[in-house]
């Protein structure tokens, strides 16, 4: 009667069970890397206050023209983010939607001539509005530079930052009037001009006095 024991079919069963055992492992294992910021867990933030996390301007060749980070990213992470996103965004064809999902966030992008304007927002934020914010920024740049082109933004990158700082603070929209932004920038530019002239005249006086 003991011969009816299912002898030794476990050679096979063993094999299969070790296979299924791996299922369990692969479902439960958490292999986390030290200091690796990619361990994203949306629940780890204690409350979700929507904001823009960063703004990127990337040329079609993948060159960075402007970066602004409103959430803390280390230098290493920033490089990684830029690399990943330019890989994703620059390869997307025309007429596709302007949103890509990325690590639990959304990146809204829009191409203007040779430049891609990208803003990273939260999952639940309003993508269509972010597109309007991008356009708002571009229109103000356009007014300031007079039909802006990539070269303007390269040689006057600091001006582009000053303008952005009048539009966004802490990843939130600051001003919806293009006129107001232009007026504020012009006022500050003239402050700088006045200071420059003063410095020039002083140095001229010194130069003449020491002739």
């Amino acid at each position: 009667m003991l011969t009816s024991l299912p002898q030794s079919l476990h050679i096979v069963q063993l094999d299969f069970s070790s296979g299924t055992k791996r299922v369990v492992e692969s479902g439960t294992e958490q292999v986390l890397q030290f200091y690796d910021f990619t361990v994203e867990n949306s629940e780890s933030r204690s409350f979700v206050v929507e904001q823009i996390h960063f703004v990127l301007l990337i040329s079609r060749q993948g060159k960075v023209r402007l970066t602004k980070w409103y959430s803390p990213y280390t230098q290493k992470e920033r490089t990684k983010v830029i690399r990943e996103l330019s890989g994703m965004i620059l390869t997307r064809g025309p007429k596709l939607c302007n949103f890509v999902e990325w690590k639990g966030f959304k990146v809204v992008y829009k191409r203007y001539a040779s430049l891609y304007f990208c803003m990273c927002i939260d999952q639940e934020d309003n993508e269509l509005e972010t597109l309007e914010i991008i356009h708002h920024f571009v229109e103000i740049l356009d007014r300031y530079f007079g039909s802006v082109c990539e070269l303007d933004l390269i040689f006057n990158f600091h001006k582009a930052y000053y303008i952005l700082d009048e539009i966004l603070i802490a990843g939130e929209l600051q001003e919806s009037s293009k006129k107001t932004v232009s007026r504020l920038i012009a006022a500050q530019d003239s402050l700088v001009e006045v200071a420059k002239e003063q410095a020039n005249s002083i140095s001229n006086i010194i130069a003449q006095a020491t002739k």
């Binding site: 299922v23 369990v24 492992e25 692969s26 479902g27 439960t28 294992e29 958490q30 292999v31 867990n41």
Partner: peptide, 25 residues
């Protein structure tokens, strides 16, 4: 089998996607 599968779900959900799936099998 299904018990173990569902038992592993909460842990899997809390990991970032991908890490658990790339394990060598």
């Amino acid at each position: 089998y299904s018990g173990r599968k569902t038992g592993s779900v909460p842990a899997a959900a809390s990991t970032s996607q991908g890490t658990s799936l790339n394990l060598p099998n």
